[in-house]
């Protein structure tokens, strides 16, 4: 554990709390992609299988994994049942099969070991890298977002960004590199660059998140 990794995880935790706060206070999931949230449930369930099948890492690790599985399922419940009328499927139109299919194929080709757990782990890494795309696509389509939603996305992007110095640190401190996680992580962070540009130049200057027409 190093400071980048810890800050990254805390940022991930914060992003979920911001999202829950947004849904609860506005009593609406407007502007949130159900598809992205559903993909995160798949990501967490396939990656954290090791909670039941793998080796014990730490209490921190287990508690965080349980939180991510629990909160992502709860968000789906809020979106699909509790605040269902506030979700508009007509603007959430990204085809998830274009993300799930290639992730599965990549996982079958590039994994660390030909076992079910390892293939699902690799799949979850590839899928997480692109799971934000339906959300970003929706943002692109509507051209605007509530400020709280942009804070959610910023925290989520920061989590991924912070994992990069964490890997650099780990390379120098214990000589380990996890190429699958690093390459997928770089792609994932790259997807946020456009968003961050608008976030820094507009939202943090007190303006509304609006994309140029």
């Amino acid at each position: 554990m190093n400071v980048f990794r810890l800050l990254g995880d805390l940022s991930h935790l914060a992003s979920i709390l911001i999202l829950l706060h947004k849904i609860q206070t506005t009593r609406s999931c407007r502007g949130i992609s159900f598809k992205t949230q559903a993909l995160y449930v798949v990501v967490f369930l396939t990656r954290y299988l090791d909670l039941f099948l793998g080796d014990w890492v730490s209490l921190y690790n287990t508690a965080m994994k349980l939180f991510f599985i629990g909160s992502s399922c709860y968000i789906l419940y809020l979106m699909k049942l509790r605040f269902r009328p506030t979700h508009d499927p007509a603007i959430d139109t990204f085809r998830v099969e274009y993300l799930v299919g290639p992730s599965l194929i990549l996982a079958l080709i590039f994994n660390y070991k030909y076992t079910l757990v390892e293939i699902l782990w690799a799949f979850s890494i590839y899928l997480e890298a692109v799971a934000i795309m339906p959300q970003l696509f929706m943002l692109q389509r509507t051209g605007e977002a509530e400020t709280i939603t942009t804070h959610y996305l910023a925290a989520l992007g920061a989590y991924r960004g912070l994992y990069i110095p964490n890997w650099i640190y780990r390379y120098f401190s214990d000589g380990t590199v996890d190429p699958i996680a690093v390459i997928a992580g770089l792609v994932q962070t790259g997807l946020y660059l456009d968003f961050f540009y608008v976030y820094f130049t507009r939202v943090l200057q007190g303006q509304k998140f609006e994309l140029p027409a």
Binding site: R5, D9, H12, R47, D50, G54, D55, V57, S58, N61, M64, K65, F68, Y112, K113, T115, E118, W121, Y163, N166, T176, V177, D178, P179, A181
Partner: peptide, 10 residues
């Protein structure tokens, strides 16, 4: 690393 690295990251 290589064969089945320990996945200690989240």
């Amino acid at each position: 690393e290589g064969a089945a690295a320990t996945h200690d990251e989240l």
